[in-house]
Design a binder for these strands. Structure first.
Lengths: 155, 155
DNA sequence: TGCTAATAATCAGCATGCTTATTATATCGA
DNA sequence: TCGATATAATAAGCATGCTGATTATTAGCA
């Protein structure tokens, strides 16, 4: 056991991989073209109609550039509308279209249901424990992505 | 709380994101150009000199195509040598170069050390618990990525 | 007010990660 | 041994995810 298999980083990568694969399978079974990332964005916009891209990126911890691309695709599929903000011409304001709402209604129970499958091999207590620990540590590690531990040193 | 924030998928994505960011920070601080994925591959090759790409992909749960690209970059940086297998001309056999070994020696303690930081906000008991649960569920969910739950239906 | 600094979005560029398809080579069974 | 099948690697194509740069716009301050 001189290796990576017990490392948090590796295990988390693996579990994320499993999670994404399960999501893809379920959506395919449902005949729906939607990635986990797209679902999260759509769901979050639905909860905050009129939110701007930057704020949304913060809310669901996506990189702003990445989110731009995600919204592109959601817009192209007709699930999201993107408009210039009336109060800030730099910002783009997002809303879920009717078609997006229909999709959400259809897909939400499937997504809720599949969460349990991601944590396969665990009993209910263990799942709850794991979830609680994940929540605790992600909350603590909050600004880790776009706010580097070390200050931007270049210049 | 009508949302994604308590979902396993979202939390795991976040934690992976945090993990990758911490790794990148530490490597940058070390003046080393190495991603988590590249480190895992290099470390695994070092543990199994002469392993072929397909077998390595299986060992560390990487997609075979993805691994091809990872090895490309490790080879280009001079950390890994790739040769046609003497027993199977389809296969490419991998070994860590001297330079790769030096890098591993230098970076391994840093990687080991950073694992604890990924699980910030947890005490030692909680970290051990989370690690054990992650291990248990990833072991159970093993074939989830390249072995779909539903059979390939197209055609 | 006018200039500077910050912010929102986007672009280019690179690394994962996966799918489908293609090529080269092995393997297995008739 | 030949032929169908399987396997190893790679290519093309798309979706995340991040960095650094650029443009447009806003905010803050002298």
């Amino acid at each position: 056991m001189v290796e990576i298999y017990n490392m948090a980083g590796h295990l988390v990568r693996r579990l994320n991989q499993i999670s994404v694969a399960i999501f893809a399978d379920r959506m395919a079974a449902e005949g729906v073209e939607l990635t986990p990332v797209q679902f999260a964005a759509l769901s979050a916009i639905d909860a905050r109609p009129g939110i701007a891209q930057a704020a949304l990126a913060g809310a669901i911890a996506y990189d702003q550039t990445t989110l731009g691309g995600v919204i592109d695709r959601l817009e192209q599929k007709g699930f999201v509308a993107r408009e210039v903000s009336p109060t800030d011409r730099r910002a783009r304001v997002l809303t879920v279209t009717r078609s997006g709402q229909d999709l959400l209604a259809r897909v939400r129970p499937v997504v809720r249901d599949l969460q349990g499958d991601i944590l396969s091999g665990l009993d209910e207590d263990e799942k709850a424990q794991l979830l609680a620990l994940l929540k605790k540590t992600t909350d603590a590690g909050n600004g880790k992505s776009r706010a580097p531990l070390a200050p931007r040193d270049k210049r």
